[in-house]
Write a protein that binds this DNA or RNA. Structure first.
Lengths: 165, 165
DNA sequence: TCTTTACGTCAGTCATGTTGACATATATCG
DNA sequence: CGATATATGTCAACATGACTGACGTAAAGA
């Protein structure tokens, strides 16, 4: 009779491996958000503001609908945060040229500066982790993370074609 | 004069790579938490309850201080959530034997069942991602994720010694 | 013209975090 | 033993960011 918790048991191995994955994700996310949160607090902003600034900076000219689809929150929730950022001069809205109901979003210069300041820490964290882990590990990381994301959103991360490298 | 945004430019490549990392983490976390959140809502609970149940299940007999250190929230915040879970019979507290000020936390049978139900989806998501990515990718994933976590918490994820595999 | 879509707004609620102050029991140290 | 520190709990007030539901406007599309 073998102990269920002995590492020799393959079922326990698998369970342990999966739980480690869950915990890696929890701790990484916790630490990854802590630094920007501290900066945001100085502006009286929260994590939601960072997300909006980040994705608008990444996709200049995106619509409100696009943003809602990415964040998966209600328009009422977005409205408060986005409204503040527009009022305080971090983001501009201009009507779409082809569909004038749309409000195309863009960072102002001030917004770009805040985005840079906030995301800088996170980029640095990734740069260090990538450097320490090596190129092969990065490719593995990418594969696993993609597998964790709902299939519908995976096309956001295209394969690197022949134009790359 | 070359276009700054041409994929040939190595600085842009790096920037793109880092931003993809940031986004992978955002989307993975967003999708990873969505399923348990839906189950929790049926109980009138939130994500905070899941975190408490998860870590108590993972570390039976852990103290309140241990839990606070993991979650990085205030004791007042924890108190509400933990109090509910104790009151409603998901978690038991018993005084420590060596230090009787401590309240050692454990899941009840009911708590174990809820934990299983909640985490099952997340384990399944990891199992699928690991399976599709392959063993080598999983090792890379582990390496990168560890690099993203504050050094102080990395010892929570020990290397696999000779007793493993 | 009628309907649908994109976006906005007002109002109320809930979950989860915060700070600050204070209380109790137990452990530890001089 | 007495003083101090630690582990835990509690009350109160507040902020953030999510939610639902209802309603409104302008523009696009059938």
């Amino acid at each position: 009779m073998t102990d269920v918790k002995t590492p020799i048991n393959p079922l326990f191995l698998r369970e342990e491996e999966l739980r480690q994955g869950i915990e890696l994700l929890f701790f990484a996310y916790r630490d990854f958000t802590a630094e920007p949160d501290a900066i945001l607090a100085e502006y009286g902003y929260g994590r939601a503001h960072h997300r909006v600034i980040y994705f608008v900076g990444r996709n200049p000219g995106m619509t409100v609908s696009d943003l809602l689809a990415i964040l998966r929150i209600t328009k009422q929730s977005l409205s408060r945060v986005l409204g503040q950022l527009v009022d305080e001069g971090f983001i501009t809205q201009r009507p779409g040229t082809v569909d004038r109901r749309q409000r195309l979003l863009e960072l102002t210069e001030k917004g770009t500066e805040l985005e840079r300041q906030l995301t800088e820490r996170q980029r640095a964290r990734f740069a260090a982790a990538y450097r320490d882990a090596g190129a092969e590990a990065v490719e593995g990381f990418r594969k696993v993370m993609l597998g964790l994301i709902d299939e519908a959103d995976r096309p956001r991360f295209p394969q690197r074609g022949p134009g790359w490298r």
